[in-house]
Structure formats: structure tokens, C-alpha cells
Amino acid sequence: MSSASPRKSVRKGGSKATPALTKSLPRHLVIQDNFLAPDLAESLRGTFDENFLEPRSTNIKRFVWDYWHVPSQYTLIRTSAEDYFDAAQYERLTSALTDFGQKHLGCNSITKPWLSYYVDGCEQRMHTDSWHGPFAYVLSLTNWEEREFTGGETFLMESLALDYWRNFDPKVGLEEDKLMSTVEPHFNRLTLFDPRIPHGVRAVRGTKDPRKSRLVLHGWFTDLGTPFYEAGGISEESATEVLNEALQPLYDSLANKCSRVIGVLNVRLDVDGATGRVTKLSSVADTMVADPLDLIEGNTPEEVRASVLKEIERHLKDLQFDSKGQDSSITLPFIFE
């Protein structure tokens, strides 16, 4: 469980939030608006609308939907995005998601995305699904500003609720907005979150028309653990040798000096092309929290996080790479289980 409040980071377009490593805070929820190229987002939405334009038609795409109903848990209508969109649309969609995962999360792959719509009565009640991957996403194609329904927001439990008793104050009353974060599915908004956090979708009430429904693409980022190299003058082979030399002493130090943490920390190393030296260490993705069952007496969860970050910085900040004259960056994933 996380003891610090989940951080909601809002990104516009392709901007990057990369705090200095020792200043990193756990970020369990990230929102990026205008995620897809506008023409692609409109094309995907247009395909869906066209297939439902004439309710009496026998278009084959009207028969690919699965009504998924698990009593008291899940109700929605879903299909495979790969089977629904044409090859060019699907390639652009999955490339955009995969590129984002590699650059910002340290994840090299994604699960095949679902396309789902929610009409009256559809919902997802609270659940977790971290076994699918370390990061879940929802990419909205909903015409949210013109909606004719209530509900449909993604909700996530706040850390105040997950770690309720540690900061309990009997003099303070709490309401839902202090216990749950909610995210509206605006058109072309990517909502990324830690699937260990209990989450769900508020029940949709109102429309029964698919074209006026909550419409989203969703899935998980996967294949975490392999460094990602972005441009520059460092070969993967030579960089791997340098990293391997540094990582084993780092792992030994973390095991001997620090309390246990769980989650993901992806560190970006910016490398100067002229010298091969690390010029900056920053956090790209961070869901790392202290294991409350392994706290050393007197340590707070925040102090445990700080000690882990300092050890990682100490072992990586003075690395020397064989650079060929062009600035480089390496995203290095750390998985704590």
C-alpha cells in the first residue's frame, strides 16, 4: 500500500514530466490529453459511428460485440480493436501506445487493446488487475462534452483510504472525493494508472444508443525490465556492459541497507555525447511504495523511498559510457516485487 497520496500528472501533447531522481514522488495516475494525432482519433471514432449509423443494417461489424456481464462486478460491451479497425488504423494506434510505453514507462509492449462501449446499466465495480501488466490505460473516444448520460468516469481509490489508519483523525469527516479520484473520459484523453490501486468505472445511466455511449480503448503496458535506448551515440552492447557492472553492487546495497519496497521505478539516464558521462538522472515512471510489513523500526514509508532513491543515484550518477559524440538517453526499469 502507498502511504503518500497518489499523484495526478496532467500532460499536454508530448510533454515529459521527469523530476530529478531523488525528488521523485510516486505517481499512480497520469492523464495525457490529445494523445493520438487528431486525424487518427477522429478516424477511429468515425469508424465506430459509421458502423452504428443505420440500426437496421446487417453490417458484419455489428455482430462482433461481446456482452460481458459478471453479476455484481462487470457489465459492458466489448470487442477486439484489432478485429474492428482496419490494418492501417490499428497499426498507428498500437504504434502510438507502444512508443509511449517505451519512452515514458520502460515497457516494451502492450496487450492487444479492447474497444468497449458503455450504455445504460454498464459499469465496472471496484477491482484490481495488476497481473496483466504494471500500468493500465484507458484511451477515450467518448464525445464527452455532448454526452447524454451520467456516470462513465474512471475512479481510483485514494491512498488516504488505502492507508486509512496511519493518518486517521477522528475530528475530520471524509466524503467520497477524499477517498476516490475520478477521471472524466474526454475525447482523445489517455488515462494511465497503477492497476494495483482498486479502481472501476461509474455506472452509466441514460442512453441506450451506442453512438452516444462511453466509448474507450483499454489495456495494459507490459514487458517491463529491458532497458530502452533512445537515439544517440551509445551502442546497446557497450552500454549493457557498463550497466551490468553497476547494477549488481546496487542490488546488493539495496538488499543490505534498505527496507523492502514494491512497485516500479523507471530511471532515465541522460548521457553527454562528448564525454560519455551521465548529466542527469530522472524519474520517468514511479509507482514504488514501501512495504508496510518490512519497515525498520522508526522509519517512515517516505524515508524508505528516499533511501532507495539515494542508493540508485549513488550507483548510477558517475557512470562512464563509450559515446560516439551524440547525446543519448537510457531508460532503465527497476521492478520491486
Rank of each mutant, 00 (worst) to 15 (best):
T182Q: 10
E158K: 05
T142G: 01
G152R: 03
F149V: 11
A203F: 05
P195K: 00
L192G: 03
T150I: 12
E146S: 06
L156K: 04
F168V: 12
P195D: 04
F187S: 02
M157V: 10
S181W: 15
W165T: 08
F168H: 14
F168P: 15
E145M: 04
L215H: 03
A161F: 07
G206Y: 06
S159V: 05
W144A: 00
G173Q: 11
V201T: 09
E145D: 14
Y137P: 13
R214Q: 00
R196Q: 14
S140D: 06
R189G: 05
L160S: 08
R211C: 08
V138F: 12
S159W: 12
D194F: 00
G151L: 03
N143V: 06
V201W: 11
L156I: 06
A203G: 07
M157S: 04
Y164R: 06
F193K: 05
A136L: 02
S140R: 09
T150W: 08
K178A: 11
E153P: 13
H186I: 10
K171C: 14
L160E: 09
V138R: 07
W144C: 02
L174V: 13
S213I: 00
E176M: 14
E146R: 05
T207M: 01
R202S: 12
L160M: 10
R166M: 13
P185F: 01
R189A: 02
S213N: 11
R166I: 12
M157P: 12
F193N: 12
L160R: 05
D169I: 04
L192W: 04
R202Q: 13
K212T: 03
R205S: 10
H199F: 04
F155D: 00
F149A: 03
T191M: 07
Y164N: 12
I197K: 07
A161S: 04
H186W: 14
D169S: 02
S181M: 11
E153R: 02
G151M: 04
R196K: 08
L179P: 15
L160V: 06
T207F: 01
W144N: 03
E184N: 08
S159G: 15
T150H: 07
L215V: 03
P170S: 13
F155V: 00
R147C: 05
M157R: 13
G206E: 07
N188G: 03
F193M: 07
F168Y: 13
L162V: 10
F155G: 00
V172R: 14
L139A: 02
T150Q: 15
E175N: 07
R211E: 13
E184P: 06
T154W: 02
Y137Q: 09
A136P: 13
G152P: 14
D194I: 04
L174C: 05
P198A: 00
L160H: 11
L179D: 13
P170H: 13
F168W: 09
R196C: 05
Y164I: 07
L192M: 08
I197T: 11
T207W: 01
